[in-house]
């Protein structure tokens, strides 16, 4: 059986929740010793702008998962989340059909072989300069059945509303 795949890639180009005040919360661990500060100062930082905080990032991921659930109930979803963000992850991202990983490569390969359907959400939204993220996001939808044209449209429309552009 040939696996169908539709994908989308875009970049966050502005603050995602326009006209809403947003707390600047870097949510880094507290630094106390000279060595702590020296280590921190040694990290490289990216030229890309920081456009959201962890709270807003989780909100976007949670909204994407909610929309995916409506389109494909119970869909297995893997999401790249790099760091414990210092706040609780929204409940729907903790559901048993969702897995949050640092790197999706190996698990995506395994799931593509057996799991139907499968949604992969991989973003590099920057929360803090030292994460060196480029604000990109990719979606990949895999299915054993023929997918309707533009199956990812509801998720893409949502991302556009949040300032993601191709």
């Amino acid at each position: 059986m040939t696996k169908q795949c539709q994908q989308y890639s875009g970049t966050l180009t502005r603050m995602p929740f326009a006209h809403k005040p947003s707390i600047c919360e870097a949510q880094m661990l507290p630094l106390t010793t000279d060595s702590d500060f020296a280590v921190f100062a040694d990290f490289t930082s990216s030229p890309y702008p920081v456009l959201l905080n962890v709270r807003e990032h989780y909100q976007i991921l949670s909204d994407l998962v909610e929309k995916a659930q409506l389109c494909w109930p119970g869909i297995t979803t893997v999401i790249r989340i790099s760091m414990p963000g210092g706040m609780r992850i929204p409940n729907n991202l903790l559901a048993d059909n969702v897995l949050l990983l640092e790197d999706l490569t190996a698990e995506e390969q395994k799931l593509v072989a057996f799991t139907n359907p499968l949604l992969v959400i991989e973003d590099r939204f920057s929360h803090i300069e030292i994460d060196n993220n480029d604000n990109s996001i990719s979606l990949r939808l895999y299915s054993n059945e023929v997918l309707p044209t533009d199956a990812l449209r509801p998720l893409i429309t949502y991302l556009h509303q949040r300032g993601v552009a191709k």
């Binding site: 989340i81 760091m83 414990p84 992850i89 903790l94 048993d96 059909n97 897995l99 949050l100 990983l101 640092e102 790197d103 190996a106 698990e107």
Partner: peptide, 20 residues
Amino acid sequence: TFVNAYECASWGYSLRHYLK
């Protein structure tokens, strides 16, 4: 595969995913 999103409970969430 590396999982740290669930902090100290990561082992349990990983095994749940495997069983599911």
